[in-house]
Structure formats: C-alpha cells, structure tokens
C-alpha cells in the first residue's frame, strides 16, 4: 500500500515473483501500475506493508531503515531515469560516493573509480561537474556509480527515458554487457525495444502481474 497525502491506494497486490541470480528482468506497464513501487521494494528503499521479500537469503520485509541501508550498501546499484547525479560533486567524486560509504581505502578507491570510468569511456571527463556533460554522458556516469562497488543487483528505473536513441542504445548495451558478466538486472521501462534486451518481461497492471513472457530461457 502506498500512502499519498490525499488517498491511500494499493500500489501492489498479491505479487509473487522470483528473480534468479544473473537474470535480466524487464518490468513493463502503464503509468501508475506500481512499477516504481515494486522497484523501490526490490531496492530496499521501501518496505512492503504486507508479505515477504527474500533478498540474498534474508527475509527483509520487516527490516528497519538502518538494516536495509546496510544491506543495500555494495549489494544494490541504482540507475535512475533522471540520472540523479549530485550537482556539487565532480564525475570522479560522484562515482566515488558508494565506495566512501563502504569505507574503501583511498588508494583502492581511486583505482576502482578510474577503472570503471575508463570502462564507461568517460575518464577524460573525470573532473567535470554533471551540468557540463551531455545526457548520455551523465547516464554513463550514473551507471559507473551504480557498478563501481560491484553490486550483485542493478536496479534501473527507465534508464533510457531521458536519452536519444543512440545514447539509449549504448546504455542498453552496457547493461547487457554487465548482465553477461553475471550482474542481476531489474529494469523498469516503457520501451518494448529496451525490454527486448531482457530474458523475461513482467507486465504489471493495477498492481498485479498480468503476463510474464520469457524471451529466452535463462540458465543458472
């Protein structure tokens, strides 16, 4: 149940899904169907009012904010539609942030950030601020930030929503590549084209799972 100021609406209702390690899952559905709520619960940003959620052998549905926060660290990476880079921090500092919270030593931090920036082909922009970058570049930084701590899961909320098709294509290829390396990816999207990158597409409508199409068989 999700409470806004005016009314209470049931955002998700009797959903039962299992996502395996290494899977690439796309969640689709019209606006207001509960996609984002689902993603927030999966990402440990929010608790469900009812039901169970097993994440990495933990039953986390009743976890406190503090417990969720510590489990989130290093295990989950987020990629947002609006990038959500911190304006006052440079590219390097933005990407460094998750490692700071994991208390990674300075030298190792530097090495890891540079590695991921190089991989994202954005190393030459390391000292720029987000506003100085194009949308595509900003999203590459956001992905770099999401993967720098090598999380087992990446949650992407319409990662191509603010990008043109060329840049969008590039982001999708990056996600596919990460998935091929073993990272579990859950992506909310409106775009059928993007959804085609996933192994499995879950369609939501009014907080319920209406269809699940398995595009290709996923093997652990």
């Amino acid at each position: 149940m999700y409470a806004t100021e005016e009314v209470e609406t049931t955002a998700l209702d009797s959903i039962q899904i299992e996502i395996k390690k290494g899977e690439f899952v796309a969640i689709m559905g019209p606006s207001g169907c509960g996609k984002s709520t689902l993603l927030n619960i999966l990402g440990l940003l929010d608790n469900p009012d009812d039901g169970e959620y097993h994440f990495l052998d933990h039953e986390v549905a009743k976890f406190s904010e503090r417990q969720r926060s510590s489990l989130r660290k290093g295990n989950i990476g987020f990629v947002f539609q609006s990038f959500n880079l911190i304006d006052e921090l440079t590219v390097f500092e933005n990407v460094e942030l998750p490692l700071l919270y994991l208390k990674v030593p300075t030298e190792e931090r530097k090495q890891k950030v540079e590695e991921v920036l190089t991989r994202m082909n954005i190393m030459h922009r390391r000292n720029h601020f987000p506003q100085q970058l194009s949308g595509g570049q900003q999203q590459r930084v956001a992905i770099a930030r999401a993967i720098v701590a090598k999380p087992s899961v990446i949650l992407a909320d319409e990662p191509t929503g603010n990008l043109d098709s060329t840049n969008g294509e590039e982001v999708m290829r990056l996600l596919e590549e990460l998935n091929n390396e073993g990272t579990t990816i859950v992506m909310v999207t409106h775009s059928p084209h993007d959804a085609n990158y996933a192994h499995r597409i879950i369609n939501l409508f009014d907080g319920k799972v209406v269809t699940e199409n398995i595009r290709e068989q996923f093997h652990v």
Binding site: R66, S69, S70, N84, I86, E88, Y101, R145
Partner: peptide, 16 residues
C-alpha cells in the same frame, strides 16, 4: 533532496 536521496540509496546512514 536529490543529494540526500541519492546518498541514502547508496547506503548512507542517517547518522552519516
């Protein structure tokens, strides 16, 4: 708010 949200989603604690 964005800064606070991003940091929290990356594991920053309230104390931090």
């Amino acid at each position: 708010l964005k800064e606070i949200g991003v940091k929290k989603s990356m594991g920053a604690s309230r104390g931090g």
